[in-house]
Design a protein around this nucleic acid. Sequence first.
DNA 1: CGGAAAGTGGAAGGGGTCTTCCGATTCGCG
DNA 2: CGCGAATCGGAAGACCCCTTCCACTTTCCG
Lengths: 207, 207
Amino acid sequence: MLEKPTRLRTDAAHNRAQILEIAKRTFETEGLDVSMSELARRAGLGVATVYRHFPTKADLVAEAFAEPMAECAGMLDEALADPDPWRGFCRVIEEVCAMQARNHGFSAAIVTALPDQARFAELRDHALRGFTELIRRAQEAGALRADFAVSDLSLILLANGGLRSGAGAAAPAASRRLAGYLLQSFRTETAAPLPPPAELPLDGSVL
Amino acid sequence: MLEKPTRLRTDAAHNRAQILEIAKRTFETEGLDVSMSELARRAGLGVATVYRHFPTKADLVAEAFAEPMAECAGMLDEALADPDPWRGFCRVIEEVCAMQARNHGFSAAIVTALPDQARFAELRDHALRGFTELIRRAQEAGALRADFAVSDLSLILLANGGLRSGAGAAAPAASRRLAGYLLQSFRTETAAPLPPPAELPLDGSVL
DNA sequence: CGGAAAGTGGAAGGGGTCTTCCGATTCGCG
DNA sequence: CGCGAATCGGAAGACCCCTTCCACTTTCCG
């Protein structure tokens, strides 16, 4: 039986934290296309050290994005707490889009890390159930158009993700504008007939 | 002075066409992430042969996408010919989105090939001028919201490009739905205040 | 039909990635 | 303080990629 040493040596603990910190910052500002060697260099450590603490790049990514991931789930809970479901709905969309635009690695991280990390499966399901409930309430209140589908969330995330890759520094502004446009067409009043929802994954690959 | 031999040898001409054909098909269905070796293999030729006809991958991409590129520009001219500017506007958006969703390499090709290919600079400028004119007319007719900006085209293209990468086979359907949502919010009636347009490139990198 | 020129194929150059290995180093308990 | 175990660092393995080189083959003109 393998048993992991209960605690890391103090230097090792420090290095681990250091790597994680650098990874968080770098992934956020430059995306996931940073090599492990480069991360190691920036942390002032060897590559092997990085691999000792994070067996694979996906593991490092998962760990680095645990916080933003949880933050996202938190947004949903806050939104559900809002007495006005439409306002809650808007906030979720706006905030998630903003997060995605701000954090360059976020979208890619979802794809890279989510699929086979059990730790996120629960988070995702929770968020998805919450969002479904939010939609129901907003529609019942007559604010959200009736033909808005849960899969439209994937649509929004993918579309907004497209901005991040191409808009560079303007990504946050572009993102706000896109969210603005979309939210206006999600309101009941607008509701003209629409092409049917796409059968988007909705599983790990998108959210 | 270098002068290119007026005509290719018949076998060479055949091979060139063969490569181009394979490249078009492959780029369309699988995107640009196909190696030159793989393309050569599929064409039943050696790598060197590919490079003899297309000095760099970007050259091959440019050549392979010349047609869809021109087709795009054509859509604009058709739209401008439509007596109803709003209908023309919608068609451009819908068709360009459809093209982007159908042809997996299209967006990436714009980024890869457009920047330093003089042949496309003119095409792009023409299209951009045409689109600007189309916007003006649609706004004057009172159909398109007044705060729609030219840079919103980049917004649409980037957003729609995001679908293509993540939606897989559902991309066309997702694309149609996104275009549907957006067009509804572009109509005058909807027009509620909106975040300001982002300062998107608008140059080679996006359109 | 024969030979010069055009065209070809496969290997190899140069660069990048993720990951593993192992000898050298550092920590921290006794 | 000393010594074993945990940890580290850099080189190297195993794949990718795009591109170049050069001996070999094919075409086609006189």
